[in-house]
Amino acid sequence: MSESAKTMIEVTDLHKSFGSNEVLKGISTTINQGEVVAVIGPSGSGKSTFLRCLNLLEEVTSGKVIVEGRDLTDKNTDINQVRQKIGMVFQHFNLFPHQTVAENIMLAPSMLKKLSKTEARSRAESLLAQVKLSEKIDARPAQLSGGQKQRVAIARALAMDPDIMLFDEPTSALDPEMVGEVLDVMKALAAAGMTMVVVTHEMGFAREVSDRLLFMADGRVVEEGDPREVLANPQNDRTKDFLAKVL
């Protein structure tokens, strides 16, 4: 968190509406290289929408999202190029069921980076080793447990060698005993210096791993700061109220 750190994501006055329903009401924040940002808040507060705006899975209604210097709201920006550098992990894994674990991971590198089959395969092997699932390389998603699926999903998201990783409630759909294995992988990623934005309900993870905490309510960031401080001593009423319920 040195002052000289490179800015990875810059969000300015981001608004997002679905029809007449305004979900994001003006969010501005800057995320630096290597920073791990945890986004918490009650359901319906706009956390996931905010995250999905960062790789334009949701179209932005107004405001600016600039990722590594490229303005995503500019029509001339090749969003597919930008997305190759932003990995995303979904709550429900979204593995491709008609492909094996290896094929899931190799898809983007072989299509977009034109890696040879052997190159892509060795990339998949090293990524699977990283998430400790080497033995599942030729399994089908249906043969994996929830935790294993999410670790494969992380490996897939890492396959394009992204600069930023987005996590959309990565452990919410997991049985409790599997949450740990996924968080361990994420901790390792953070320790390795990955820039991460994590929408989560895991307060423990937020406290221990993240560098900064954003608390969202009603489409706004109502409080942000050092996670240990915010969690221990919330200033905003909404934050206090929420933390009282979840902790």
């Binding site: 899975l57 597919n80 997305r83 995303m88 979904f90 299509m111």
Partner: peptide
């Protein structure tokens, strides 16, 4: 499932 398209697009596929 719409998640399939989102996952593919998030990887940078058009």
């Amino acid at each position: 499932d719409t998640g399939q398209m989102e996952a593919a697009r998030s990887l940078g596929l058009n």
